[in-house]
């Protein structure tokens, strides 16, 4: 097998590559999209709460601050983590990982792999805000008395979550340990190190 050639998997007929072609480029593209969209997601109102004709738009941050003012501190922390901290951590963290892979920055494989999978895992929790909006918009809908609607930022926010998740999906994790060739550690033979190279 050469570096460019591809084989088919015997089980699933999927294409096999030594490294998925252009995966870093695709991952960068999705990440850049998310990094752009995080601005409208945070600047525009994400919810429009109307009581007796008084419309009260809330951005993600002002919604969290309202929760703090109402004294619901634990909920405010959860909302802040899921909708503000996690997307930013994801974008910064993935940028750092992709950059370190691209530039062969010395970093322990283990730490980088653990970091990548941690970021991949926390990504799902940002969807929380959209679920909350979906539940509350029905329960608060009382026609003319009150309504709770999704603001223009929801689509942008949804796209941020979606793009960062896809970005970590298309990234070929094997690139993580290409940066630092610790070839011995990758070959185990039933728990013992096997010195022969593949």
């Amino acid at each position: 097998m050469n570096r460019v050639g591809s084989f088919q998997c015997l089980s699933c007929n999927g294409k096999l590559h030594l490294r998925t072609p252009n995966s870093l480029q695709a991952a960068w593209a999705w990440l850049a999209t998310a990094a752009v969209l995080i601005f409208p997601a945070n600047l525009y109102p994400i919810t429009l709460f109307t009581v007796f004709g008084n419309e009260k738009p809330d951005t993600i941050l002002s919604g969290t601050l309202t929760l703090v003012k109402m004294g619901m501190f634990p909920i405010a922390v959860i909302v802040f983590t899921a909708s503000i901290a996690v997307p930013i951590i994801k974008i910064v963290g993935l940028t750092y990982i992709y950059f370190s892979v691209q530039r062969h920055v010395k970093l322990s494989d283990k730490a980088r792999t653990r970091m990548f999978h941690f970021i991949e895992w926390i990504g799902r929790w940002s969807m929380m805000d959209l679920f909350v909006i979906s539940i509350m918009s029905v329960l608060m809908d009382l026609g003319h008395i009150s309504s709770f609607e999704a603001g223009p930022a929801t689509a942008a926010f949804g796209l941020v979550v979606f793009c960062t998740m896809v970005s970590s999906k298309v990234f070929d994790t094997r690139l993580l340990w290409d940066a630092e060739q610790a070839s011995e550690e990758h070959l185990y033979h039933s728990g013992q190190r096997n010195k022969s190279k593949l």
């Binding site: 909920i75 929790w125 929380m128 805000d129 679920f131 909350v132 539940i135 509350m136 998740m165 999906k169």
Partner: peptide, 23 residues
């Protein structure tokens, strides 16, 4: 498999409940 978010949905439900408990 990583797009199944029912666990996230349940936590969101709790958050929504706390937000509406005074209403």
């Amino acid at each position: 498999d990583s797009w199944v978010m029912l666990d996230v949905y349940l936590i969101s439900f709790c958050v929504a409940m706390f937000k509406m408990k005074d209403l």
